[in-house]
Design a protein around this nucleic acid. Structure first.
Lengths: 154, 154
DNA sequence: CCCTTGCTTGGAGTGCACTCCAGCTCTCTA
DNA sequence: TAGAGAGCTGGAGTGCACTCCAAGCAAGGG
């Protein structure tokens, strides 16, 4: 666990696109009540997947109307943004469920959460390096084909 | 398809670790005859996976002994390195089979192969950007937890 | 000669992450 | 008051990429 850039413990800037994929027209906190199909439009996840995430414990309890329909909040949307990012970077659903459990257990689990995210960050860094290696190989091969094409043209 | 670094069409340098994962003690071309378990050690793929790759047409015809046992060559090892890299970067097996077919069809398919690899390269670049975005989010969250820890320590 | 080790095969099984289905309720509009 | 449309549930189904199994050869050592 190399500590290359030990970030200063000063006010961490919120990353730009923390808001996520296509989280466009959000409502103000207080009247943030999204139906499941609105959340589909906002997150790109399917309604099936949203219900499934809730079933397996990957959502922090979604509000319901008196008739039992889900009403998602801005907090839920933020959570789904994080979940989508973690999924996109290959974190297994089981690990995300574990993280969600830690969140439910409150501030006592801060250290465990930090460890979990730090481990995943290492994974992501390694994946980036793998991808860059492959990029080199792809560049090399593509150049070979391009050369062959140019060579046969004249 | 942004052409950020349009590589010059001059002698493309073979990328360093083109040799791949753990391709250690290779034999010289000519007496390159590896059993399946040697290839397991060399590539990290399982014997099951190697046989399965051959079955689905992802291997360019592996030699056999008179008793029917596989004997892999250095060329096969090179191919497996490429395949492993492509898999690691998320290319579906079906696409790799398609590429293998193109290779079998000979030089007439150079252009198609180039297109296939170029498309995948774009995918890889996009994946890298996604991973970097997530890295920002992870840094942000980890800092929050670290701050909370430091704050409660004093 | 037997036993172990390593390899062979076709086909079945596994794990993950969804994805869909059937049958139901509720609300809204005409 | 009828019908459309959105949402609900538990459970079954899907697709991918392996992964394993059972049964059977072949070679080498004791």
């Amino acid at each position: 666990m190399t500590v290359m850039e030990s970030a200063p413990v000063t006010a961490p800037a919120k990353p730009r696109n923390c808001a996520g994929l296509r989280s466009g027209p959000r409502r103000a906190d207080g009247q943030d009540q999204y139906t499941i199909s609105e959340v589909v439009g906002l997150t790109g996840l399917s309604a099936h997947t949203l219900r499934w995430y809730e079933r397996i414990g990957l959502m922090p309890h979604v509000d319901r109307t008196h008739t039992g329909q889900r009403r998602f909040s801005n907090r839920d949307l933020d959570w789904l943004d994080l979940v989508s990012k973690l999924r996109l970077t290959g974190m297994p659903v089981a690990d995300m469920v574990r993280y969600a459990e830690l969140v439910r257990e409150g501030p006592a689990t801060f250290a465990a959460r930090e460890r979990l995210l730090t481990a995943h960050r290492e994974d992501v860094r390694q994946r980036i390096n793998e991808l860059r290696d492959t990029l080199d190989v792809l560049d090399y091969k593509i150049n070979l084909y391009a050369d062959a094409r140019l060579g046969s043209e004249e």
